[in-house]
Simulated scan of single mutants.
Amino acid sequence: MRDFHVHSNYSDGDFLRGMVRAAKSAGLEGVGFADHCNVASRERHESMRSVYGFNLDLTHERRRQGIERLRTDFDLEIYDAVEMDYDPRDEAAIEEFLLEAGFDYAIGSVHDVDGRNVQITAHFTEMTEAERDGVVDDYFEKLIALVESELFGIAAHADLLERTPPLRGRATEEQYHRVARAFADSRTVPEINAGRALTDADVVHPSDPFLSVLREHDVAVTVGTDSHRPSDIPERADFLAEFVEEAGLEPVEPDGIDRSR
């Protein structure tokens, strides 16, 4: 069992060593640090970077030094990865950064539509039903563009909308099929993401209807706990192990991992 999606203090998670120690204690064979990063130069994103400190484009070499030290201290695979915010307007900048940085693999995420973070309920409570459906449609168009860009080994929480009550359950089967066809033609794979699986929200990404469509198209999956604290890892890892076993899934490694290291 390998967990390809955790965060550290280089974005919004806990210290590297504590996260690795928790992964080792949980019996994982590998853990991948995929800290948030955004390379957009637009004013809103520049402001968010300064406030939230998602500056892995500036700090990845320092984090890599820490990861290298931990590799000598712990007997498990530790991956040097990144979770990139994706917007089609930033493809050139993302590609340039990923080529320069040389991560083990990259995760791509769609977190916002038209400047609204799709996880914030208040952004959508005053919208009409038609407007909410428009947000859902725009989200999946952006997700398809992410998959077709071939920039990423993993697409994170590919139905992130399900975390948000005004948007939950609004995706159509045709939207799921369109995304699944894009995955089937791409090196990018979706993840089984446990970030909200053990909370009151009780959300597993992808949802059962979406996962059924992905399986219909023979789309491979990988796994990630999306943990931000050491205490997240054991229960989420156990959940994922049980989930994939019951579903009869065999998770794959993301494209880009160098096994000769």
Rank of each mutant, 00 (worst) to 15 (best):
residue 168 R to E: 12
residue 169 G to M: 09
residue 169 G to F: 12
residue 170 R to H: 11
residue 171 A to D: 06
residue 172 T to V: 04
residue 174 E to G: 03
residue 174 E to I: 08
residue 175 Q to M: 13
residue 175 Q to K: 05
residue 176 Y to F: 15
residue 176 Y to H: 14
residue 176 Y to R: 12
residue 176 Y to M: 15
residue 178 R to M: 09
residue 179 V to I: 11
residue 180 A to K: 04
residue 181 R to K: 15
residue 183 F to T: 00
residue 184 A to V: 02
residue 185 D to L: 07
residue 187 R to D: 09
residue 187 R to Q: 13
residue 188 T to M: 07
residue 190 P to W: 07
residue 190 P to V: 08
residue 191 E to V: 03
residue 191 E to N: 05
residue 193 N to Y: 02
residue 193 N to K: 03
residue 193 N to W: 01
residue 194 A to S: 13
residue 194 A to M: 01
residue 195 G to Y: 03
residue 195 G to V: 04
residue 196 R to W: 13
residue 197 A to S: 13
residue 197 A to C: 10
residue 197 A to T: 05
residue 198 L to E: 12
residue 198 L to T: 07
residue 198 L to Q: 09
residue 199 T to G: 10
residue 200 D to G: 15
residue 202 D to V: 12
residue 203 V to I: 15
residue 203 V to H: 07
residue 203 V to E: 12
residue 203 V to L: 09
residue 203 V to G: 05
residue 204 V to E: 09
residue 204 V to K: 03
residue 205 H to D: 11
residue 205 H to K: 04
residue 206 P to F: 08
residue 207 S to Y: 09
residue 207 S to D: 10
residue 208 D to L: 12
residue 208 D to A: 15
residue 208 D to N: 09
residue 209 P to C: 12
residue 210 F to I: 07
residue 210 F to Q: 08
residue 211 L to V: 06
residue 211 L to W: 11
residue 211 L to D: 10
residue 211 L to Q: 08
residue 212 S to P: 05
residue 212 S to G: 15
residue 212 S to V: 01
residue 213 V to N: 04
residue 213 V to A: 05
residue 213 V to I: 13
residue 213 V to S: 01
residue 214 L to E: 12
residue 215 R to L: 15
residue 215 R to T: 06
residue 215 R to W: 08
residue 216 E to P: 07
residue 217 H to E: 15
residue 218 D to L: 04
residue 218 D to H: 09
residue 219 V to M: 10
residue 219 V to F: 10
residue 219 V to G: 04
residue 221 V to I: 13
residue 221 V to E: 01
residue 221 V to W: 00
residue 222 T to F: 03
residue 222 T to D: 02
residue 223 V to K: 01
residue 223 V to G: 05
residue 225 T to I: 02
residue 226 D to V: 08
residue 231 S to K: 11
residue 233 I to R: 02
residue 233 I to N: 04
residue 233 I to L: 07
residue 233 I to S: 08
residue 234 P to V: 06
residue 235 E to T: 02
residue 236 R to W: 02
residue 238 D to F: 00
residue 238 D to A: 15
residue 239 F to C: 05
residue 242 E to I: 00
residue 242 E to S: 13
residue 242 E to M: 01
residue 244 V to Q: 07
residue 244 V to H: 04
residue 244 V to G: 00
residue 248 G to C: 07
residue 248 G to Y: 05
residue 248 G to W: 05
residue 248 G to M: 05
